Amino acid sequence: MRVLLTGGSGFIAAHVLDILLQQGHSVVTTVRSQEKASKIAENHKQVGKDKLDFAIVEDIAQEGAFDKAVVSDPPFEAVIHTASPFHFNVTDVQKELLDPAIIGTTGILKSIKKSAPSVKRVVITSSFASIVNPYKGTWPEHTYSEADWNPISAEQAVENPANGYRASKTFAEKAAWEFVEQEKPNFSIATMCPPLVLGPIVHYLNSLDALNTSNQRIRDIMMGKAKDEIPATGTFIWVDVRDLALCHVLAIEKEEAANKRFFITTGYFSNREIADIISKNFPQYKDGLPSSSTPGGEYPKEGIFKVDNSNVVKTLGVKFRNLDDSITDTVKSLQAVGA
């Protein structure tokens, strides 16, 4: 299948790219600069230009940003849209978080409808942020599934960057579903809603300082930052990046994924469990790691919401990796870049 992958140098997309190539698909990936394209090409030397090529899209929030990228010979049959702008130092939530996320998502759908009639399936990376109800806390009596939507309002969205991030994911995903409903394009969509994404980094794109937010906690625990107190876990559910990437690819390959939302999670974890796994498998870090009496990093005493990932298992047929394997592989990948 000929596939356009956006945001190819991102943490999730780099793994999606590997799986697409392994499965024999032919890929064009968008990146923000020639330098990033060269880095990716350099690390897939064995792959010819017919199987891996690049399109430069500097700013996905620009009107018509993807107009050129969606045109290909041979034409694309599927698009996997992982690109989403995200900075922490936000001064204007509307301009820096909400607009780029929503315009980036509806923009690519418009470009596909206008210029790539051969595309039959578009997979969009959304987030558990568009499912969770942040106002309910740990909500032990509730089971989260694809039926849930974050109830955040436009007014709440601009109150602070954390709200802005959650709202950007929620509004962008809603905009995608509305687009399909109103525009009735040639393609169906599938949205991927993962919580915390852990798992090995792609070494050629990452340094220890440039990790995705989720993996920073593993680096910090390895480096002794949790020795005296383990930080609060925050979101207690996770997925390994390789399983998430596989779900993206399966969602373009399987007919039955059409117009479905997928809540992609393996289940639960805590920061204490991460510390215990590192301690068990990497004795060289022992001196800097918390002990069983170190405070923090526990599950909430009042219990925690339940999760239903049966739709993912049933429709995509994915088998999830366990936390031990995921953390062990992540630590090894961090060691490879100098941890």
Rank of each mutant, 00 (worst) to 15 (best):
M1F: 04
V3S: 09
L4T: 00
L5E: 08
G7S: 08
G10Y: 01
F11W: 10
I12C: 05
V16F: 03
V16L: 04
L20R: 08
Q23R: 14
S33F: 09
E35N: 05
K36L: 07
A37H: 04
A37C: 12
A41P: 05
H44T: 03
V47L: 00
D50A: 05
I56V: 15
V57F: 04
I60E: 01
A61S: 15
E63P: 08
A65K: 01
D67I: 06
A69T: 02
V70L: 06
S72A: 15
P74C: 12
F76L: 06
A78G: 05
V79D: 09
I80E: 02
H81D: 09
T82V: 11
T82S: 08
A83N: 04
A83Q: 04
P85L: 12
N89V: 09
L97V: 09
L98P: 10
A101M: 06
I102V: 11
I102T: 01
T106S: 01
I108Q: 13
K110V: 07
K114N: 11
S115D: 07
A116G: 01
P117V: 03
S127A: 06
A129C: 14
I131V: 15
V132T: 13
N133F: 06
G137T: 11
T138H: 10
H142Q: 15
D148S: 12
D148N: 15
S153D: 01
A157F: 11
Y165R: 09
S168D: 03
T170S: 14
T170A: 15
A176E: 00
E181I: 00
I189C: 07
L196E: 10
L198I: 08
G199H: 07
I201L: 05
S207L: 07
D209T: 13
N212Y: 07
N215R: 08
R217W: 11
D228R: 11
E229D: 08
A232Q: 02
A232H: 02
D240P: 02
V241R: 12
R242N: 14
A245Q: 14
L246A: 02
V249M: 09
V249Y: 06
L250A: 13
I252R: 05
E256M: 04
A257Y: 03
N259H: 06
K260M: 03
T265K: 01
T265G: 03
A275Y: 10
I277T: 14
K280D: 15
N281F: 07
Q284G: 13
Y285Q: 11
G288F: 14
I304H: 01
K306T: 14
V307N: 02
D308C: 13
N309K: 00
N309W: 01
S310V: 02
N311F: 10
V312Y: 06
T315W: 02
L316G: 14
K319P: 11
F320Y: 09
R321I: 05
T330A: 12
T330W: 03
K332F: 09
L334R: 07
Q335E: 15
